[in-house]
């Protein structure tokens, strides 16, 4: 497993844990809290995500270096990252379209914000999942 592959796996796990928890706690999609309550929860989630990601990446770098493994990136890593970005972009575009349709249907601001947030999270998940599949299956 390359350092980049491990990094993608760790990032995916952290995002799934943090945002999975956030959306699970949010409850019913049609009965979301007020925008003020969302702000507080969202800021806490984003800060939590940043802290966890930084901690996980530092730990991964230290462990990889201690094991004497290479942490550099080569052309295969870059190719896989590009394909992951492309697939993530498709999901983000689909989410943006869904948010536009939601606005046309006069959904509330909180719902639209969460639709966009979900699109961003899913695009990141799609990007990282694509990378992990390509590292295993080949490119």
């Amino acid at each position: 497993m390359t350092f980049r592959e491990k990094s993608a796996a760790v990032t995916l796990a952290v995002i799934a844990f943090v945002y999975g928890g956030y959306f699970w706690r949010l409850g019913d999609w049609r009965d979301l809290p007020t925008i003020d309550a969302v702000d507080a929860g969202l800021i806490g989630t984003v800060i939590g995500l940043c802290v966890l990601l930084i901690f996980a990446q530092i730990l991964l770098s230290v462990l990889t270096t201690m094991a004497g493994e290479d942490t550099t990136e080569d052309e295969r890593d870059r190719t896989i990252a590009l394909i992951g970005d492309r697939n993530g972009g498709y999901v983000a575009a689909a989410g943006a379209t869904a948010a536009m349709l939601a606005l046309l249907r006069e959904m509330g601001a909180v719902q639209v914000v969460h639709l966009l947030l979900l699109a961003l999270v899913l695009s990141e998940v799609a990007k990282l999942a694509t990378q992990l599949v390509l590292y295993r299956r080949g490119v």
């Binding site: 390359t2 052309e75 295969r76 890593d77 490119v139």
Partner: peptide, 26 residues
């Protein structure tokens, strides 16, 4: 080989197993 070519060992493994077609340069 990875050191000489300038890629990671995992890329050499992927090439040997036919899971990665390198660029012309590599």
């Amino acid at each position: 080989l990875a050191e000489t070519v300038g890629v990671t060992r995992q890329t050499v493994i992927a090439m040997e197993q036919g899971r990665y077609s390198p660029s012309l340069e590599v």
